[in-house]
Amino acid sequence: MRYAWWRIAVFTCAASVPCYWLALAWQFALGPDPGKVLVDNLGQGALVLLLLTLGMTPLQRVTGWGGWLAVRRQLGLWTFSYALLHLTSYLYFLLGGEFSRLGEELQERPYILVGMLGFLGLTALSLTSNRWSMRRLGKRWKALHRLIYLIIIVALLHMLWVVRSDVGRWFLYAAIATALLALRIPVVAIALGKLQRGKKKIRNKPEING
Rank of each mutant, 00 (worst) to 15 (best):
R131C: 05
N130Q: 05
I151A: 02
G121Q: 01
L125R: 03
I176E: 01
I151G: 01
W161H: 07
G115R: 02
L91T: 07
L125H: 04
W141N: 02
L106M: 12
S165I: 14
L147R: 07
L125Y: 03
I153G: 06
L127I: 14
I148A: 13
A143Y: 10
G168M: 08
I153P: 00
F119I: 07
K142L: 15
S100I: 14
L117A: 14
K139I: 09
L150Q: 07
F99L: 12
S100Q: 14
L147E: 06
V167W: 11
L106C: 09
G138E: 02
E108W: 03
L156S: 02
R169M: 14
T128L: 03
A175D: 03
I152T: 13
S126L: 10
S100V: 14
F119K: 02
L122S: 01
S100H: 11
H145L: 09
L156C: 06
S129P: 00
H145F: 06
R136C: 04
G121W: 05
L150P: 01
M159E: 09
E98G: 08
R164P: 01
S126C: 15
S133A: 15
L172N: 01
L91N: 07
M116E: 05
S165K: 15
F171Q: 12
A143M: 13
L137K: 00
L172S: 06
L95I: 05
F99K: 04
G103E: 10
E104P: 09
G121K: 00
G138Q: 04
L150I: 11
E98N: 12
H158C: 02
W161T: 10
Y173Q: 01
I152K: 01
A177I: 06
V154T: 07
L137G: 02
E108S: 13
R146F: 05
V114K: 01
L122W: 02
F93G: 01
K142N: 15
W132I: 10
Y111S: 07
A177P: 00
Y111M: 08
E105R: 09
K142I: 15
I148G: 08
V154H: 00
V167N: 08
I151Q: 04
V162L: 11
L160P: 04
L150Y: 11
R146S: 04
G168I: 11
L122G: 00
L117T: 09
S129Q: 03
V162K: 07
V114T: 14
M159K: 13
G96R: 06
S133P: 06
R169Y: 15
H145Q: 09
W170F: 14
W132D: 13
S133R: 06
R146W: 13
A175E: 02
R164S: 10
S165N: 15
I152S: 09
R169N: 10
F171C: 14
K139Y: 03
L113W: 11
